[in-house]
Nucleic acid binder design. Structure first.
Length: 571
RNA sequence: GCGCUCGUAGCUCAGCUGGAUAGAGCAGCGGUCUUCUAAACCGCAGGCCGUUGGUUCGAGUCCAACCGGGCGCGCCA
């Protein structure tokens, strides 16, 4: 948090020099090259440009007002107007010692906590969860964890697809083709089979299509039998969801699916029509964006011409619920990038509907997962990759690797390690990419112990733990830290920047910044580990190095935890 | 046609309000285990950052045009 202290002083100095300027965006970041210093700001150059001043002169004036004595040994003006801050050794030591004593890891809680709703995962009832749900699920969970740690009030909501036209088909299938034994054994597979069979039959046979429509109408009008079947399908699906989320270590505060908003839709649509926001067009209720720069050609249908609501109307009702009932100040929708237009429309409609609304709405979108051929990821047979099967394979592959490496461990231990490593690898592969990029799914790459992978980071953790297992280490909370070797200094300075990584994740909803940080930290630790013996060092040095190990383990563990990744004791 | 997005090393990817010599991993080449886990580590080599213009003291990053890929665009979600 030293950087925040420096930043605060720097901003104060800028205000002293330029009272009218906006100093809030004058940030301090780690120097990309430690040759130049530990922290730098390049923001004075931008400010100088804006103020039409000479950048070096401005920098000189700011430095004259700047007092960072407790933290910095010196401050330099460099190049066209960079400010480079060189940390004072005792400040680094003090920060590390404080973290050792408190167990608190180099970040600061938000001074003004926000209420943040995060909408993610959103699987469909009666269908298997598949690879298409994984990015949303993992990204949403990681973001929720980061915002919680930073002190925000986070509400996670699983907006499941539990209503809609597919239930007409499913009901017909349930009533005519249901195999009770299969349903007992594998309910999701059976429901999927019913849906596919009826769908196929309906393509050939108009009567089946008519039957499905009739069953849907009955369901929607509250028919007891159909509602009962629907509830049963919901229960069966929920236990599948619970199973997958249990394996992934994910919990939701709410699971308010589409059906939850059914009885609000009529009123929502009526309000939008009455307010003149929506209008009839070809029998549907539609919102136009006639004076909008890019959406003037893309109207949004909020009620179909057959009178049924669709996902736009449900999303509007959902949004209202989150703003009004939960007092959300920020709502994140973690979905596929293909829904950008949809959310732009929903957000715009809602702004027209509730112009006084101040909540920040963000579509936190992500790209596709591609197979080795560069096309959307499928099974060898060209089918959808089911999520449960994907988790199984991750664990199996990790088990093979662990067994090769450590054949002496008993099977239960190896399976437990494989679980953490396999699922960790799967999650990390997703999180370590820029979420907006498409990424190529590759088992070997994600499970590799070299490179920016979960196993590499977990391995670094086990090396730390191994030291403590062998070392019989006493309490380190009062240890004196002295940093001599360059690897010790580099590691120590990296530790200080954990909070910056968290800040950038939160600012841009991008967990890959945390991944990059952890990878760099693990790299620094490895360099230290290679160069600096810990247990064999002399007393004072041993204490200091053990302290570094402890803090590294603490930050790695906490960081991986934020990504939903567990750390095995051995691997 | 309109819109979104991507184009960085042979491959897979990073690149944080525009900033200092563009970074990793794999693959390639060469090294390191009587020493805290060598599925580890170190070194070498590898780049007109799609093209062309523009803005700027400074552009992989911003703007425009073009080339090439992916995706979206009235009753699926």
């Amino acid at each position: 948090m030293i950087h925040l202290c420096i930043e605060e002083k720097l901003q104060a100095a800028v205000r002293a020099v330029l009272p009218d300027a906006d100093a809030s965006r004058i940030w301090v970041r780690p120097c990309p090259d430690l040759q130049h210093g530990d922290y730098q700001t390049n923001a004075l150059m931008a400010l100088a440009k804006q103020q039409r001043r000479n950048p070096r002169e401005l920098a000189t004036a700011v430095v004259a007002q700047l007092d960072v004595t407790p933290w910095c040994a010196r401050v330099e003006i460099a190049g066209p107007g960079f400010l480079n801050f060189h940390l004072a050794p005792h400040a680094i030591n003090a920060a590390l010692q404080e973290a050792l004593g408190t167990g608190h890891s180099f970040f600061k809680k938000a001074t003004t906590p926000r209420t943040i709703v995060i909408d993610f995962s959103s699987p469909n009832v009666a269908k298997p969860m598949h690879v298409g749900h994984i990015r949303s699920t993992i990204l949403g969970d990681a973001l929720a964890r980061v915002f919680r740690l930073l002190g925000h009030r986070v509400i996670t909501d699983n907006h499941i697809g539990d209503w809609g036209t597919q239930f007409g088909m499913l009901l017909v299938g349930w009533k005519t083709l249901l195999d009770a034994a299969t349903l007992e054994r594998d309910p999701i597979a059976e429901m999927e089979r019913l849906y596919q069979a009826i769908n196929l039959a309906a393509k050939e046979d108009e009567r089946i299509r008519e039957q499905a429509r009739a069953e849907l109408v009955k369901l929607q009008s509250g028919d007891a039998e159909n509602l009962g079947i629907w509830r049963r399908m919901l229960e069966l699906s929920q236990s599948q969801f619970d199973n997958v989320y249990g394996r992934l270590g994910i919990q939701f505060d709410h699971t308010l699916g589409e059906s939850f908003y059914n009885d609000q839709l009529g009123a929502v649509l009526a309000e939008l029509a009455r307010a003149g926001i929506a209008e009839e067009s070809d029998g549907a209720l539609v919102v136009f964006f006639r004076d909008h720069a890019t959406m003037n050609d893309n109207p949004a249908i909020i009620r179909k011409s057959d009178g049924a609501a669709n996902y736009a109307s449900t999303d509007l009702a959902t949004l209202r619920h989150r703003v009004e009932q939960w007092q959300a100040q920020e709502i994140l929708y973690v979905t596929d990038g293909r829904q950008q237009l949809h959310f732009q429309q929903v957000f715009t409609i809602y702004q027209r509907w509730h112009p006084q609304m101040t909540a920040r709405l963000e579509h936190v979108w992500f790209g596709s997962i591609l197979g080795p051929d560069g096309k959307p990821f499928k099974t060898r047979e060209g089918g959808v990759v089911k999520l449960a099967a994907l988790l199984d394979e991750a664990e199996e592959r990790a088990l093979t690797a662990v067994t090769q490496k450590n054949p002496d461990l008993d099977e239960a231990t190896r399976r437990e390690i494989a679980r953490a490593v396999g699922l960790g690898a799967l999650k990390y592969a997703d999180l370590s990419n820029n979420r907006q990029s498409d990424y190529t799914f590759d088992w070997d790459k994600m499970l590799a112990l070299q490179g920016n992978t979960a196993p590499y980071l977990q391995y670094a953790c086990t090396r730390v733990r191994s030291i403590f297992r062998k070392g019989e280490v006493a309490d380190l909370s009062g240890a004196t830290i002295a940093l001599a070797a360059p690897q010790e200094l580099a590691l120590a300075k990296r530790l200080l920047n954990f909070g910056i990584a968290l800040e950038t994740v939160a600012a841009e909803y991008r967990p890959n910044y945390l991944c990059n940080y952890l990878y760099e930290l693990a790299g620094d630790f490895t360099a230290f580990y290679e160069a600096c013996p810990v247990l064999k060092a002399g007393d004072a040095e041993r204490q200091s190095r053990l302290a570094l190990c402890k803090l590294t383990g603490q930050v790695l563990h906490e960081g991986l935890g934020l990504l939903g990744i567990e750390v095995p004791e051995k691997m």
